[in-house]
Design a protein around this nucleic acid. Structure first.
Lengths: 240, 240
DNA sequence: CGCTGTGTGACTGGATGCAACCGTACCGCC
DNA sequence: GGCGGTACGGTTGCATCCAGTCACACAGCG
C-alpha cells in the first residue's frame, strides 16, 4: 500500500477514552441514545427496530442510524439480518448463562484492578448505595442502584478494554435482570444485600482475594437464580 | 411507542449465528475483509485508514465502509475520531496485558465448553497441527498454525457469545503476537510446543480441569514473555 | 378445503452529492 | 527569528435518491 506520507497519518489518535456521550457526532449520539433506550427496557428483547422510526425519533437521517445499529450489533445488543431488519437481541437461557459465567470470570479481575484505588470516600458511597438498595421497593430504582453499586466498585480501574467488556456484558443481560428482579422474594433480596455488604467489608479490609471470591459467588448465585426461572426466557413465545 | 402491529415485527430473527463470511452484504463483506487485512498485518497498529481508499479497494461506496469501520471500532480493532479519521488501534503494553489477563480467565471457560465435544479425530488433528508448528520456521505459518490450533480446540463449543469474545481478543492482540514471535528463541518455542502437547494429552484423558490449567498457564506465560519485550510496543514512537 | 405461484407493498442496502470540520502551510506581525 | 492569525486542501459526516430484496396476501389450481 502507499506508504504513509501525509503528516496527519502519523498523528496519534486519542485513546479510545470515552465510549459514552460523545459530542457533535450524530451517529455516536444515536448509538448512545438507542443503547440507553434498549437497556432501559423501552425496546424489549425481540422487538423490531425500524431505521426510519429511530431516525425520526432522534432527528437524524437513516445513515447514522444504520451506523449506530452496526455498532450496537457488535455490542451484542441488536441482531441484524441482511435486507430484512434489526431486532433487539434476545438471549436464550443458555446464552444468558454463558454471559453470566463469563462475568464470573472477568468481573473479579476487573475488581482486582479497581480495588486498590478505591479510597474511603468511595467505599462509603458504596455502602450508602447498598443501604438504599435494601430500602427501596421499586424495581427500576433497585436495578439502577444495583448497576451503580457495581459500576462504582469498578470505578478505580483505569482499564480500557476490560471496563468496556464488562459494560457490554451488563448491557446485554439487563432486560433479563429486570425480568427476574420482579420475581425475587424478600429472602433473596436479603442475600443480595448481605453479599454487597460483604464485598464492601472485604474492600475495606484490603482483602482483595476475598473480594474477588465474593463478587464471583455473587454473580454465580444470580446465575443460578436466573436459571431457576426459565419462564423469563419464554415470554414472547417462539413464532411458528 | 407504537405497539407492534405489522406481522413482520413478530418474526423471529435468525440467531446471530455467522458473524464471519456473510453473503450479499457489502458492508459485512468489507468489514470481514478489512478485519482480515488488519489481523493479517497489512495495516499495522497506528496506521491511518482512509475511507475512500478502502472503498476503492473493495469496490464499494464509502457508506458501507463507514459501517464496517463502526463495527470494527466496537470490535476494538480500529479507533475512530469524529471528523478526523480512523486508525488501527494501537495497544500499550498495559492494555495488551489486560487483554491477556482477560484471556487467561475466559479461554479456560471456553475450553470447558468445547472439550467434552471433541472426538478422537479432532484431537488427532490438534496433534498434527502442534507437530507442524514445531517443524515450521516461517513466522506467518507459525502464527497461522497457532491460531488454528487454538481455534480448533474451541471448535466443540456451541457457544454464541463466548466464541465471539475470544475471537475478538485474539484479533486485537494479533499484531503484537506477530511482533514478539519474531524474537522468541528456540527454547521458548519448545515450551510452546510442550504446552500444546500437554493440552492435547489432557483432552485425550478427559481431564478437563488439567486442560483448563494448561491453557491458563499457556496464556499467562505468553503474557509474561510479551511483557519482557516492551520494545514491541515502542515501535512507531509516540508523536510529540 | 389446502397448497402453490405470483403480485404488491414496504423496508433495507448502497451510491452520489453537498456541507462541515480539521490539519497544514503560508503570511504578516511582534 | 519566533509567534499568532488566516486561507486553503483534504477528509469526514450527513441527507437525499434509487435499486434490490424480503415478507405478506390474494388468486388460481389440484
Amino acid at each position: 500500500m502507499s506508504a504513509a506520507s501525509a503528516p496527519l497519518d502519523r498523528v496519534r489518535p486519542p485513546r479510545v477514552a470515552a465510549p459514552l456521550t460523545r459530542d457533535g457526532n450524530a451517529s455516536a449520539r444515536v448509538a448512545d441514545a438507542l443503547r440507553e433506550a434498549i437497556v432501559g427496557g423501552e425496546y424489549p428483547p425481540g422487538s423490531r427496530i425500524r431505521q426510519e422510526e429511530i431516525a425520526e425519533r432522534f432527528g437524524a437521517s437513516r445513515v447514522p442510524v444504520r451506523e449506530a445499529l452496526k455498532a450496537l450489533e457488535a455490542d451484542g445488543l441488536v441482531t441484524l439480518v441482511a435486507n430484512t431488519g434489526a431486532w433487539v437481541t434476545r438471549l436464550s437461557l443458555a446464552e444468558c448463562e454463558e454471559v453470566y459465567q463469563t462475568r464470573e470470570r472477568v468481573e473479579p479481575l476487573l475488581l482486582r484492578y479497581s480495588a486498590p484505588h478505591l479510597d474511603d470516600a468511595a467505599l462509603d458511597e458504596l455502602e450508602r448505595l447498598a443501604e438504599r438498595m435494601a430500602e427501596t421497593a421499586d424495581v427500576e430504582e433497585f436495578l439502577r442502584l444495583d448497576r451503580e453499586f457495581h459500576q462504582r466498585s469498578y470505578a478505580g480501574a483505569d482499564t480500557l478494554v476490560l471496563g468496556d467488556l464488562v459494560r457490554r456484558l451488563w448491557n446485554t443481560t439487563q432486560p433479563y435482570r429486570r425480568a427476574y428482579t420482579l420475581m425475587i422474594d424478600a429472602h433473596s433480596q436479603r442475600i443480595v444485600h448481605d453479599e454487597h455488604h460483604m464485598l464492601v467489608t472485604a474492600l475495606r479490609d484490603r482483602d482483595f482475594d476475598t473480594a474477588e471470591r465474593v463478587i464471583e459467588g455473587h454473580i454465580r448465585r444470580t446465575r443460578r437464580l436466573l436459571a431457576s426461572h426459565p419462564e423469563v426466557f419464554e415470554t414472547l413465545p417462539a413464532i411458528p
